[in-house]
Computed example of a mutant assay.
Amino acid sequence: MNEEQMKKDLGGGAVFETGDPNTAFAQYFIGQSYLKMLTTEGVGIGNVTFEPGCRNNWHIHHKGGQILLCTGGRGYYQEWGKEPQELHAGDVVNIPPEVKHWHGAAKDSWFQHLAVEVPAEGGSNEWLEEVSDEEYNKLK
């Protein structure tokens, strides 16, 4: 982990603790991510940190959705069939249930967001295919 570059990209440092390497979900990410669960009571909120170039696979939140609260760096969010959105600190992304999407860092910047899981009875996540290098490399 290049902490100096991370602090620069995240505006002086992480708002919340970066956490440990995200080994539990590593199979669903290209590149290195870090996870620090801030709470699991009531509403799960995790601080997810992406090294430059890191992104998660396409996935769907069934029944419940997800809210991303961007806290630092530069990243992207994309819904299936739509253009990618560039994300910066202060951006909020409301992801409805049943929407196929991915999110992650820009090639040249660390990125961090709080992932808020919208509670729903019987809610689950379905992890899908990787975001291809060809697709990802089209981003600026």
Rank of each mutant, 00 (worst) to 15 (best):
P97V: 13
H62A: 09
E130A: 06
S132L: 04
H88E: 00
W80C: 07
K107P: 02
L69F: 03
E17G: 15
E17T: 12
I60E: 00
Q66K: 10
T40S: 14
V99N: 10
G44E: 06
V92S: 01
N94G: 13
F16I: 04
D133T: 12
P119I: 10
G123A: 15
G122W: 08
E129V: 05
Q85E: 13
W102L: 01
M6D: 02
D108I: 10
G46M: 05
K63F: 09
G46S: 13
L114E: 00
E121Y: 10
N47Y: 11
A14G: 06
G53A: 12
I30V: 14
L139S: 04
W102S: 05
E86Q: 12
W110N: 00
H103S: 05
Y28L: 06
Y136T: 09
W102T: 02
Y76N: 06
W110F: 06
K140I: 05
T49Y: 02
V43S: 15
P21T: 08
I60H: 09
F16S: 04
T39E: 12
G31D: 10
Y136L: 11
H61F: 07
K138W: 03
M1W: 12
N2W: 02
D108F: 13
Q32A: 03
G81E: 07
E86V: 13
E129D: 11
